[in-house]
Computed example of a mutant assay.
Amino acid sequence: MTKNFIILLTFFFINCQSQTSNDETAVDKKARQAAIVQEHVYDCADKMNYTVMMKEYQNCIDAGIKKDSTIAYLWQQKAMPYFKARKYEVGMQYINKAVKYDAARWQPYRAFIKCIFAKTYQEAIIDFEDCKKKFGNNYEMDHSYDFYLALCHLQLCNYLEAEKLLTNYVLEMKNRNGESWVHPTALFYYGISLYEQRKWNEAITVFDRALALYPNFSDVKFYKGICSGRLGNIGEYNRLIKESEEDYKRGYTINEDNTVYEMYPYQKEWK
């Protein structure tokens, strides 16, 4: 057996052994990463109140990241409390890491954060449009990407574009499951897109659809009241504004989960 043949055989054996090891790692990767998440998120970070124990919470997450920095969920969990503390730039650097390792799961979430939390609407539009190209017009936090694009356009005073997006979103929900399944918040913003274009009667028609589904929706009553006043119906204006304040103080406002952390566009807060 020649020296060169022995070297070649040794190289082939080492290469095969390495390939087997890599294959085993790939098979076991999901279970290994799940164990890290269990230990450092569910059994550690989740036991900390990050509002008053941010350092301890982050220590749990950092220990998991030290074991495997490619776990996207760890980066998202590291970012999340900073967003809720309104430290958006701090959180964004970590959610960017989550997107790097799992864009399908976390890029739409990042775009949502830009829209509702950080309020960087141009950046949110870029992110959501990219998500639509990659993943289609999917859903994030109970709404389609087009819904959030419409909110961004409302905040950038692009009212006609917002109307187009919301018209399609509302129609899609109605066609799929009927009027009763149209989201009242979507109807609220559809009405707002008309309100901002001074289409008072059209806006009232849409606001009435929202109230048929959510009769105590204080924000809808407020803007419907303004539309009524602009049309000269002062009695209706006074009634709706009074009801809006009463309903708000009873807790009937935009019922999105994240309103506990952030005011949504056009949400009317009564003191």
Rank of each mutant, 00 (worst) to 15 (best):
V37K: 07
I234K: 15
F11D: 02
D247E: 10
E39P: 02
E262S: 14
F217I: 08
E269H: 12
K224S: 11
C44R: 08
Y169T: 10
E161V: 03
R86M: 07
H40D: 04
T205W: 03
A35Y: 00
E140T: 13
V37S: 03
D142C: 09
F11P: 01
Q33W: 02
N177L: 15
D28N: 15
L154K: 09
G91V: 08
V41K: 02
N255F: 08
S228F: 03
A203G: 05
E269S: 10
E179Q: 14
M141W: 04
N137R: 06
M263Y: 07
K132Y: 00
I126G: 05
S193T: 06
E56P: 03
Y145S: 02
Y139W: 04
V37W: 02
N138L: 03
I125V: 11
N216T: 12
L160F: 14
E269D: 07
F135P: 01
K67P: 00
Y252W: 12
Q155D: 11
Q107H: 04
K47R: 14
K3Q: 09
L149M: 09
D219L: 06
A104R: 14
D130C: 00
Y145N: 02
F112M: 05
Q38G: 06
L231D: 01
M53E: 15
I254S: 02
N22Y: 09
N138G: 11
K47A: 09
I125T: 08
I204G: 08
H153A: 09
K100G: 00
L211K: 07
G178E: 12
N22D: 09
L149R: 08
L213Y: 14
P81K: 06
L156M: 13
F12N: 05
K3C: 03
Q267R: 12
A63R: 13
E123F: 05
W106D: 02
Y57Q: 06
E172G: 03
N49A: 10
T25S: 05
M141C: 05
G64W: 02
N216M: 12
L74N: 02
E196F: 01
A79W: 03
I254Q: 02
M1N: 06
R239W: 01
E245L: 03
A212R: 14
N4K: 10
S18N: 11
Y145C: 03
C115E: 12
N201K: 15
D127L: 15
R230F: 05
V41A: 03
T205H: 09
N158C: 05
T185W: 03
W75F: 04
G232W: 14
I254D: 02
K119A: 06
Y145L: 13
L154A: 07
Y266N: 05
L211A: 13
L156V: 03
I204V: 15
D146E: 12
A162Y: 01
I126D: 15
N96S: 13
L151P: 04
V37F: 05
S144T: 13
E163M: 06
V41H: 00
E256N: 11
A63I: 02
N258T: 11
F222E: 06
L149V: 08
N238W: 04
E39H: 08
G225D: 06
Y148C: 01
F128W: 10
